[in-house]
Computed example of a mutant assay.
Amino acid sequence: MESLGAFLKNRRDRVTPERIGLRTYGTARRVPGLRREELAQLAGVSAGYYTRLEQGLADGVSEQVLGALARVLELDPVETAHLHNLARRPPRTVPVEPPEEEPHPRVLALLDALAEATPAIVLGRRGDVLAWNRTGHALFAEHLDFAAPESAGTRPSIPRMFFLDPLTRELHRNWDELARVHVAYLRLTAGRFPGDARLAGLIGELTMHDDRFAALWAGGEVADCTTGDMRLRHPVVGSVGVAYQVWLQPDSPDHRLEVYTPLDGPSGDALAALARRKPVR
């Protein structure tokens, strides 16, 4: 899992003195971005204290200091929230096995209300499929058993499928774009749940088995994942473009209902064709 110090250094390397109007007087620099002492001065803390932050030796960093660091590092709201999550993490977090996730009855009722005309999937905190309707299953994973989400031991993992399943990779025409989104959101989730042993294991597995994931994870991007477009090459209905939007669940805030709507007329016809098909499993 990512540490506060690693995140700070990653963001410090991205902010050049020229970008924020800091004069360097032509001196040679050994770092791509700000030096520790420069960031400390701009944030109003001592260089020694900031160094201890990057080294993981300073506990109880204040909200004011975090706010100042976020300002100097030009963090957006999601990155700032991630910074606060990392700062609140206990210094020696031991991952533990989390309880099994179960979709709340209200979200299942909402999924049923969408019927088959609108593809939809309910996702857990690690991207496990907790439930899907027939069209959501047919759109993204018809090669898997429709009943797989009903058991915790067989639930498909969207991040694992996205990076390790060749059929899923082939399905997405804008795979590279979506890969960055997947990794950035997984990093945000890891900051929220540092003690989740299954999440840590998933990140480790993907890092070991997919070079693209490893490279993106090393890049340090962090972002939420609430809306966007997917361009698909579906094996049955051909080219499909869908917009996804995420509905958070008040009763189970770690879970997300993803709903997919067509980007154009032909895509709408393709989704309607999928909804009319008889289940294959």
Rank of each mutant, 00 (worst) to 15 (best):
L171V: 10
P77F: 01
V72C: 07
E150T: 11
T80V: 02
H234M: 04
F193D: 05
G56N: 00
V15P: 05
D229T: 09
G56V: 00
L75W: 07
L8F: 11
G60E: 08
Q249W: 01
L186K: 12
Q41D: 09
V242P: 07
A184Y: 10
E142F: 09
Q245F: 06
V15A: 09
V65W: 02
A43L: 01
H104I: 01
V129I: 14
Y25C: 02
T135K: 07
P99V: 01
G5T: 09
F7V: 10
G195K: 00
L114D: 02
M161Q: 15
L248T: 13
L39V: 12
G124F: 03
A6V: 12
L257P: 03
E116Q: 11
F193C: 05
V183Y: 14
A28Q: 12
F193T: 04
D264Y: 13
I203L: 15
P91L: 12
A58E: 13
L248P: 02
G44L: 03
F163P: 04
A43Q: 06
P166R: 09
P105L: 05
H82R: 03
T93A: 14
V31Q: 08
V94E: 15
L144C: 09
G5D: 10
L108P: 00
A47V: 07
V240F: 12
V280K: 13
T16V: 05
L263Q: 15
I203M: 10
D76E: 07
V45A: 11
N174A: 08
T189H: 04
R277D: 09
R125S: 09
Y25W: 14
T168K: 07
D196M: 02
A197G: 03
L130W: 13
R256D: 03
L83K: 08
H182A: 06
P119L: 05
E150F: 03
V242M: 08
A28L: 13
D165I: 06
A138K: 11
L130E: 10
R11H: 15
V129A: 10
L271E: 11
D251N: 05
V237K: 11
V61L: 08
R71D: 14
V15R: 09
P262C: 11
M1V: 11
L8S: 11
F162I: 06
R180L: 08
